[in-house]
């Protein structure tokens, strides 16, 4: 199933979507399919596969360390494609990568390759709206949804432009800070941002990420009216802590079961 279809169907059914972020790591190759199955069984809607980068400026300590570890293990572009082929058979996938690995490989070629390996979404955390047109065009040419990020503090006008240009979903950053970030999920009131995004692009699901770590923060985040949450650092922590797929499934289920608190 495609990322955009999965999230749109869930939104239509008023079912909150849980998207998990998993950093590609050569040392994790043998575990990936088990993790993806546990994620699916636990109720995740999709998986973002992160490609490691040497300068992960949008990432907090948890994921920055994971990027460094993955690179130390020798993870390269072929590992991303291999992992995509495995995970895309189990859940819809998006690739999350900083801009430079795409630039180095060649935008069109890189997106062609991830699309061929099963990705239907692409997220670039250091891509601002102004720099996005060539990325959007290349993604469109290969039937990949370029998911744009919006952040607290941007104007309503800018948020609307981003929502209209984003495909698959709108990735709303939940707080001022890097991934993992604030202690208790969203610390800014995101309700107006979610409402503005829905008004600008009525069909587009809005997911909130950066700082969602457990059922409590997920519930609070969903109370903004968002259609789902993205969990990255906490999932990374869970995978590093446990070797069994059943405890991964349990972690995923605990968050996926969250409904908006009222």
């Amino acid at each position: 199933m495609r990322l955009d279809d999965a999230l749109r169907d869930a939104r239509a059914a008023h079912r909150p979507s849980l998207v998990l972020y998993l950093l590609v790591d050569r040392a994790r190759r043998a575990r990936v399919s088990g993790i993806a199955r546990a994620a699916r069984d636990g109720g995740a809607a999709a998986i973002e596969l992160g490609f490691p980068f040497s300068e992960p400026i949008a990432d907090g300590p948890e994921l920055a360390a994971a990027h460094a570890r993955s690179l130390a293990h020798g993870t390269g572009w072929p590992d991303l494609l291999d992992t995509l082929r495995v995970v895309s058979r189990i859940l819809p996938t998006a690739v999350m990568t900083y801009a430079n690995p795409l630039v180095r490989r060649g935008l069109d070629r890189a997106i062609d390759e991830i699309s061929g390996a099963g990705a239907t979404g692409l997220i670039v955390p250091d891509l601002s709206l102004e720099e996005s047109p060539p990325y959007r065009a290349a993604a469109r040419a290969h039937a990949v949804c370029l998911v744009l990020l919006a952040a607290p503090g941007i104007s309503t006008e800018r948020l609307s432009r981003i929502a209209r240009a984003s495909r698959g979903f709108l990735y709303l950053v939940g707080h001022y800070g890097t991934t993992g970030g604030a202690a208790r999920g969203a610390t800014v009131d995101l309700r107006p941002s979610v409402a503005e995004a829905h008004a600008a692009a009525p069909q587009l699901p809005v997911l909130i990420g950066f700082g969602v770590r457990d059922a409590i923060s997920a519930r609070r985040t969903l109370a903004t009216g968002a259609d789902g949450v993205v969990v990255g650092s906490a999932f990374e922590r869970c995978i590093n802590r446990t070797a069994t797929t059943s405890s991964v499934a349990r972690f995923v289920r605990s968050i996926a079961a969250a409904r908006a608190s009222t």
């Binding site: 949008a58 955390p125 601002s128 720099e131 952040a151 800018r158």
Partner: peptide, 8 residues
């Protein structure tokens, strides 16, 4: 300006 939106 290749930056996270938060900085824009």
């Amino acid at each position: 300006a290749y930056v996270p939106e938060t900085l824009v």
